[in-house]
Nucleic acid binder design. Structure first.
Lengths: 341, 341
DNA sequence: TATGTCTACTGAACCGGTTCAGGGAGCGCT
DNA sequence: AGCGCTCCCTGAACCGGTTCAGTAGACATA
């Protein structure tokens, strides 16, 4: 039925071992023999059997991604699909596959990594949504699974990181708003247990103080539309109501914008709004959203490259991707001279 | 290092074969011996080696999903992440893994299936986004990969389908609008090469004629925000401008709604709008979107169950999931007595 | 007691590769 | 001629399971 290395060996009149050497480009066969073996293999239509290769070489030829997210909320995050697509563009060139796991809880997440390790399903993993004091670093070390992290965690990590600075974009948003005359700029952030939730808040804080402004109100939300709405409602209720709000992602910004409009406020005349991610929808909102592109496609591609070269024995060095630049659209405008109340 | 079946055999004082029989619950060992072997295996902490199992049993213990979508647009579709999460909830209970592939073009898609087959990466696949006259049916048959399809394709297919009727929801949207006095109801659909693009258009058409109305304008768009906007612009430019538009997904509906608002139209006073999917954001738009839930989580879970039972040798029978019901929110309202122009 | 049947188990082949020890041939050097 | 070295290749072990043919022993049957 299927052609094995044995068939090739027989047809070429050599031993199994010689065929293996020839096919893998290893020394141990003369150029003549090698060429003959390769020709015979081609003629017979030989294809390597991945399972056999896996068993004897103790490799999976696959990398893993564990997405820890409430399944019901997973669909709302535009990051992952594009990120996965980026990973794939790299993997497909290297005959690697992607094994994807979705974990609903922290326990399920740990279990997922343990399963991947126990079954040797993957040769390495990519860690996203890095958390402050992330327990996965130690877990993966103990499981002896190589990894690549998105951005460098604050705790010591032996794994290379692929970094994309998000503080610059947030700082640019603050500066942009300040230049428009805003002084009360609030921030609706993501969970502060995530390093990207935290770094965006700090970026906002620093940019505010750099501009000589008080840091204004901060609300910790959860990257969901519902959370964005609730946070917006709270900010707009406050006595010193902000004239501009910087959101940590587009989804919250969109919900916030819709909510403000439903109160009769005009964006950007009464309230300026910025997001983060630059989702496709951002351009098509009314008004279109000022935001910062996240480029998950690039991030995924580079992270996979980094992981593969790590698996190939390359030293673990961090890679820095260019910082995304603020995209100004119509959701930001001059600060109102007399804010509505 | 790791405990193998050999170690267990030696420790239990039996042969390798006996251990295999005992661990797999097969006949050929006495109850006493079986129990002893199981105890020893437990004591030694034996874990089956998936790679060895794969090689000798010629199974991959994994299922595949090939997503054919432009990577840049993948992030905009809320269906996939939730669908994948649904698949996972089933797989995780059966020690199966999910191998995910993203293909940008039709060629890449076919290649992806061929790769999965050549490498025997998966034991079966799930087909989404079924197309009219879908070439994948024949391809998978020739590759001898079992499959499950989402909805039954029109061409003869030997694979079981997991069906969720989307016509009922669209019909309900039409009836809802008709009851509000609308007579000019347009439809912005997905590509008609997809069966769900087609079935939604036909559902709209049928419901219109059932209500005694002319089928109004239809625009074939592409499920993207940009496409939704362009289609909306075209509809609103037309002489017999619709007072309501039924979109084939939320993303296009959202873009359409924003566009209409940017023209100075009020939703729903001047234009009623319905979507499809019931994404998280739909609730938080201004106004909140009347739409039809798609329940990708359930769909994924059931599709995976169906595939696993097919792999287990069960007969290929279609499964019908309950039809989702229209969710009425504020983007639909009474038809304007004197439509704005 | 001889024969047949069944159960419980063993030993080895097998899945399809990788890898390693070892051996024969050819060559250069003394 | 004898020695050592390198090159090329073979045969077998190995990865860790599954599976099958064969066999020893217990037991029933004639």
């Amino acid at each position: 039925m299927t052609v094995t290395i044995n068939d090739v060996a027989q047809a070429a009149g050599v031993s199994k071992g010689a065929v293996s050497y020839a096919l893998n480009g290893q020394p141990g066969v003369s150029d003549d023999t090698r060429e003959r073996i390769l020709r015979v293999a081609r003629e017979l239509g030989w294809k390597p059997n991945l399972r056999a290769k896996s068993l004897s070489s103790a490799k999976a030829f696959a990398v893993g991604l564990v997405v820890a997210r409430d399944p019901r909320l997973l669909g709302t995050d535009p990051f992952f699909p594009a990120f996965i697509a980026g990973i794939e563009t790299t993997l497909v060139e290297h005959e690697y596959a992607l094994v994807l796991t979705v974990a609903a809880s922290a326990d399920a997440e740990e279990l997922a990594y343990r399963k991947l390790a126990a079954d040797s399903r993957v040769d390495g993993v990519i860690l996203t949504d890095m958390r402050v004091d992330d327990s996965r670093i130690a877990l993966l070390q103990s499981l002896k699974i190589p990894a690549v992290t998105l951005n460098r965690p604050e705790t010591t990590s032996p794994f290379p990181a692929v970094c994309m600075d998000d503080t610059e974009g947030i700082a640019a948003a603050v500066e942009h708003l300040v230049s428009l005359g805003h002084t009360r700029i609030g921030h609706v952030g993501g969970p502060q247990s995530y390093i990207h939730g935290r770094s965006r808040r700090l970026a906002w804080q620093n940019a505010m103080s750099k501009a000589g402004l008080e840091a204004g109100s901060f609300i910790e939300a959860d990257f969901t539309a519902a959370g964005g709405l609730a946070a917006t409602a709270e900010l707009l209720r406050s006595a010193q109501r902000p004239t501009a709000i910087i959101y940590a992602n587009d989804l919250m910004a969109t919900a916030g914008q819709s909510y403000a409009q439903s109160l009769g406020l005009t964006v950007p005349d009464d309230l300026s709004i910025t997001g983060y991610d630059d989702t496709e929808l951002a351009t098509y909102l009314n008004p279109p959203l000022t935001t910062v592109p996240a480029d998950p496609l690039l991030w995924g591609r580079v992270a996979a490259q980094q992981l593969l070269s790590l698996l190939g024995g390359a030293p673990a060095e961090d890679i820095y991707l260019p910082s995304p630049k603020l995209v100004v659209r119509a959701s930001t405008g001059p600060a109102p001279s007399m804010p509505k109340n």
